[in-house]
């Protein structure tokens, strides 16, 4: 069965039409999760609000459990989907750059689009920054980044395979770690907010 579009079971226009609805769901999830509020997002790094961690891991794990469950019953062939290739050197460097960008900017590209479209001025500034960054990257690509970008290529690497376990077991382990983390971060959040009360985010009017 799935994925439908790569096997040409649905047409191109229908595929793009579906994309809009998937986007709407994604946008609602991000906005309703509180991702348009940069202080909520940054809270994960200072311990006063862990909503990012909760939303993020719930989303990734729901996706992983659902997809591999469907895969095991033949409803989708994960090998036919967009399976990211791993280039560990640029990914690691870029990840750290993005981590710095996260602390400074308080958004990631997806959440900044939500913030900008709901009128958050810092979100609009961030979106502008992303465009500047990509334009800069595009014009310096051949001289600065082209070589680095394809270093450390490992192909379509699967982490469970690299660790020598089944996909199902790996997801289950991550799930257990995530659930423990959910409980622990609630305790941390409580303690941080008692010790040094940060103004309640809702009171900031966001």
């Amino acid at each position: 069965m799935g994925p439908l579009f790569p096997q040409e079971l649905i047409s191109d226009p229908l595929n793009l039409f579906i994309a809009i609805f998937i986007g709407i769901g994604f946008g609602i999830g991000l906005e309703a999760g509180g991702f348009t509020n940069t202080r909520k997002l940054a809270g994960v790094f200072y311990g006063y609000d862990f909503v990012v961690l909760k939303v993020f891991f719930t989303a990734a794990l729901t996706g992983a459990i659902g997809l591999f469950l469907m895969d095991s019953y033949g409803l989708i062939d994960i090998n036919l989907t967009f399976y990211p290739k791993t280039f560990w050197i640029p990914t690691l460097i870029a990840g750290i750059v993005m981590g710095l960008g996260f602390i400074l900017g308080g958004f990631c590209p997806g959440t900044s689009i939500c913030a900008a479209s709901t009128g958050k001025i810092d979100g609009i500034a961030f979106v502008g920054g992303v465009f500047i960054g990509i334009f800069g990257y595009a014009f310096t690509y051949e001289s600065l980044f082209q070589n680095l970008r394809s270093k450390g290529g490992l192909g379509k690497a699967n982490i469970a395979e690299k660790l020598g376990m089944s996909n199902e077991l790996f997801i289950f382990i991550v799930l257990i770690i995530a659930i423990i983390a959910f409980i622990v971060v609630d305790k941390i959040q409580k303690r941080v907010n008692e010790k040094k009360p940060v103004e309640k985010i809702e009171e900031l009017g966001l």
Binding site: G63, F68, A94, M98, G101, P109, G129
Partner: peptide, 28 residues
């Protein structure tokens, strides 16, 4: 921050959504 994300997401083939979350969903 936006500029850093712009460069980082191009070098790293995606951002938190496309690289990390979608990648985690298929155990990449």
């Amino acid at each position: 921050g936006g500029i850093l994300w712009g460069i980082g997401s191009q070098l790293g083939r995606g951002c938190t959504s496309g690289l990390v979350m979608s990648g985690m969903a298929v155990n990449a």
